[in-house]
């Protein structure tokens, strides 16, 4: 196992290369998941504000 991790003396180059590969792809995979959540959250906020505004309008209409 130590021999495997040593990579014939090239461990300082081989493992960072694999780490970069995994980290960059992981970041790339997570970005759209977070973006999708943000888009839907913002849309829900917008819809809620819209509904509240319509409710207010409806209330003033019945008052008058």
């Amino acid at each position: 196992m130590t021999q495997f991790l040593a990579m014939g003396g090239y461990a300082v180059y081989v493992w960072p290369a694999y780490a970069i590969f995994l980290v960059v792809l992981l970041a790339d995979a997570l970005a759209p998941v977070l973006r999708r959540r943000r888009v839907l959250r913002e849309l829900r906020g917008r819809l809620a504000r819209q509904a509240a505004r319509q409710q207010r309008h409806a209330d003033t209409a019945t008052d008058a």
Binding site: A29, P32, V33, R35, R36, V39, L40, L43, L47
Partner: peptide, 28 residues
């Protein structure tokens, strides 16, 4: 895989005024 996730997120943002996106937002 990554393209699917990205296109989905982008379509939701682009079509956020449409009914099908509102249904997804409400469903979640």
């Amino acid at each position: 895989f990554s393209l699917c996730s990205r296109v989905r997120a982008d379509l939701l943002a682009l079509e956020s005024g449409k009914d099908w996106v509102r249904q997804i937002a409400a469903g979640e």
